[in-house]
């Protein structure tokens, strides 16, 4: 086991580069290398952050965006997981739906934005629909792949030892598919934010994307930069959460063993 000091150091090294970039950026802004019309200085962004935090606008917008992202993720993710499991376990289901799903997958889901706006206007449904659609495919494809790549020898072993279908699923098939499902989960989280940003930038009346677009209207470049940074942080947060889940559930995997 690594000592805590070492692990802090190791986690800290990842933040060295961003910190250095911020320092250089501040320096360039202060010395006039970067015009304030092009890019706000980090200190200006920090001021904007403080201002919006105090007004409650920031918290409200982050809350709205996160709620949208997560509900879209839950809807799309569970449908993707359902189809992935069904098509992995049943040949009939796969023959029936896989071709259709693969065709839909090849349509860039953001290309549907005009249609979605026509259908749902700029209300919540539009964003939920787009996020769910974007999240669906990485989860579906990787769940299916995970189940199909479960070692058939282990399945045979489970059968010989008299496991029922349910036991076989929970003891052998699902744990075997889990690493691939996690890959899908992490892809999906990335797509979740991406979709939401685009959707909120184009058509919204609240949320981080809306905040950024409003700021652009009034040339508040510090707020625009702030929104972008918050997206980066939220994305990183979601990914860290997925990694934590991965570490907790895949302890058996040699890649996650720390001893």
């Amino acid at each position: 086991m690594k000592s805590t000091g070492q692990s802090i150091l190791r986690n800290g090294t990842g933040w060295l580069l961003p910190a250095l970039i911020i320092l250089l950026w501040e320096f360039a802004a202060r010395t006039g290398l970067i015009s304030p019309n092009v890019m706000a200085a980090p200190s200006a962004v920090a001021e904007a952050f403080w201002r919006l935090l105090l007004s409650g606008e920031l918290v409200r917008n982050i809350g709205v965006s996160t709620a949208r992202a997560l509900s879209g993720f839950v809807i799309g993710g569970s449908i993707g997981l359902f189809f992935g499991l069904a098509n992995g376990l049943s040949g009939l289901s796969r023959n029936l739906t896989d071709t259709t799903l693969q065709m839909v997958r090849n349509i860039p889901h953001l290309a549907l934005i005009p249609l979605v706006i026509l259908w749902f206007g700029i209300d919540e449904e539009a964003k939920l629909f787009l996020v769910a659609l974007g999240v669906f495919f990485p989860i579906y494809v990787n769940t299916l792949l995970g189940i199909q790549s479960v070692d058939p020898q282990l399945v045979e072993m489970g059968r010989v030892y008299g496991m029922s279908r349910t036991t076989l699923f929970f003891r052998v098939i699902l744990p075997g598919a889990l690493p691939a499902i996690f890959v899908g989960l992490r892809y999906a989280l990335g797509i979740m934010w991406l979709t939401l940003i685009v959707a909120e930038t184009i058509a919204a009346s609240s949320g981080l994307g809306y905040m950024a677009m409003q700021a652009r209207e009034f040339l508040l470049i510090d707020v625009v930069v702030l929104s972008i940074l918050i997206y980066a942080l939220l994305g990183k947060l979601a990914d860290s959460f997925a990694r934590l889940l991965e570490r907790l559930t895949l302890q058996w995997h040699p890649a996650f063993q720390t001893a």
Partner: peptide
């Protein structure tokens, strides 16, 4: 009971 050529242990179970 059968014992296979490979151990066929579940990697995710202790």
């Amino acid at each position: 009971r059968i014992m296979f050529q490979e151990p066929r242990l579940l990697p995710w179970a202790k």
